[in-house]
Amino acid sequence: MDTRRLKDKIFTITVIALSIVAIAPVFHIIIYVSYRGLPVIVESGLEFFTSIPNAVTDPKPGGIAQAIIGTLYLTATASIIAVPIATLAAVFSSEFPRSRLTHVVRAASRSLLEVATIIVGMLVFALLVLPTGRFTAVAGSVALAIVMIPYVYTYVELAMLSVPRTYVDAAYSLGMSRALVIYHKLRIMRRGVVRGLMIGVTKAMGETAPLLFTAFGARNVLFGGPLEPIDALPLMIFQFIQTGYDNWIKLAWGGAFILLISYLTLFIVTRVLVKEVKY
């Protein structure tokens, strides 16, 4: 074998090895969380999805229904607030890249990305919780929406801007209205747009810090309504894992497993459903 081929082999093997090292933590997380979480769900059975956590003195751990419901509710309502605002803002700034407003929006979005999410929580605490004297699910939704907006905005704007100029020119020369052009741009770039939405949704699902001072957590009821405190999976995991009690540590691992499964499903489903447009 000549040295050129040998070098090539060595290089290829090195690249493969380094890639494995790079993605190994992901597999480690998936395997370890499943190893700790899955047995809990098997042990609790259906109760895991229908009941609230038991007291630490109980022989069985109970369930995390209130946290699953809370995370579903908070993510859904935060998306309802964040997605229209972020998408419209992204469309605006991609259509009017030179506008002064675009510069302001871009700067605001970029700085929001930089801000620690606990600050968002404290801001919403000051604006919604302090004046009303009440922790509410609504405050949690608003806090998560603020966390989501810059992610969705950035990805959707990027997608819009990556539509080739020639396509846009062609569309206009065919006499399409601006609205129709925007619609087609979003359609062509749907993979990027959906990726933005997904990043936003997963971000909202996994956040603990903005919820600490807003949604607060309520574990002795399945769902108390929008004007009551509400639980969420990451919040529950965070608070249960640091106790010394078996029941709660088990529920925390079970919750982590559910969160992990939700991420994987979201990503796989969108990958399969949203096909790349060939042009």
């Binding site: 419901i69 579903l72 509710y73 859904a76 009821v221 399945l222 769902f223 108390g224 309504g225």
Partner: peptide
Amino acid sequence: AAIMIVMRGGEGET
């Protein structure tokens, strides 16, 4: 559907 069921369940409990 999930949210509807849950909301009604919650109201029933309160």
